[in-house]
Amino acid sequence: MDAAYSPSRIDDRFSRKARVKKRIGRVIVYAVLLGFAVVNAYPILWMVMNSFKSKQNFALNPFGWPTEWVLANYAEAWETANIGTYFFNSVFVGLVAVAVSILTGALAAYFLSRFEFKLRAPLYGFFVMGMLVPIHATLVPMFILMQHLKIINTHLALILPYAAFSMPITLFLLTSFMATFPKEVEESAVMDGCGVWRIFVSVILPMTRPVIATAVILNFINNWNEFSFALVLINDDSLRTLPLGLANFAGEHFTNYTGQMAALTMVLIPTLVFYLLLEKHIVRGMTQGAVKG
């Protein structure tokens, strides 16, 4: 990157040429990035724009700017999607499930990646197998299982499957990361007399921070959007989660799109905040880890 400022400047002409070349390269990179940004931002813009339209305005002109800004859509959407109640449920279920899967998953990944034992490979395969299963195939069995465990219609009935279904990807990511750490990282700790658990908490976990942040984001978003289990395992209105509320806008023959867009906009904000909060750990993790290593 900074070759132009290196003291070994041999030929002025050469370096100017290189600089021009670099500038062109930079322009291309930015053009690509900007194009990419536009394509990615368009759906959000469209959603926000239409969330302010009247139903008639949307029906007659789904593209343009709103002719009048209907803030009432948001109030209506809040009611229809029952965001007041469902929001808390979604946050609670989502976060607890993430906590359970990350805590147990990281611990298991530590043993699977840093230790040699007979059942290691089969266990790893067993865990990863879960990634291959279409969630809808398990709806009926899951319902019956929850009935037998007598936790149907409770938040636990969502938390446990969410944690279980995020286990494979969590383990998969964490194990493959932990496996790349050089052996030396533990050796000094062992010399200091640290035990297995201690090494996990104070050496391995901090180093794994970027990927834990990644896993937390991915799992949380999955839980946040999960619909099918939430549909069949919860009956009580006061326990339902947001995706069910968001489905309330579609009837048999009509969909209240403006209301739905307003609700989706409101629901998008917390996920964005969540992402922004964790994203810095994904990136910053590097600099800190490097200093340590």
């Binding site: 609670f92 279920v93 607890v96 906590a99 359970v100 805590l103 147990t104 611990l107 936790i151 219609n153 409770t154 938040h155 636990l156 009935a157 938390i159 009956n235 009580d236 006061s238 326990l239």
Partner: peptide, 25 residues
Amino acid sequence: LIVLLLVALTAACGGNSSSSSGDGS
């Protein structure tokens, strides 16, 4: 600590949900 944390988590959500679903059975 880990065990306690897990138990606490399970208990917390179990307790929470069963209390609010008590009349929904």
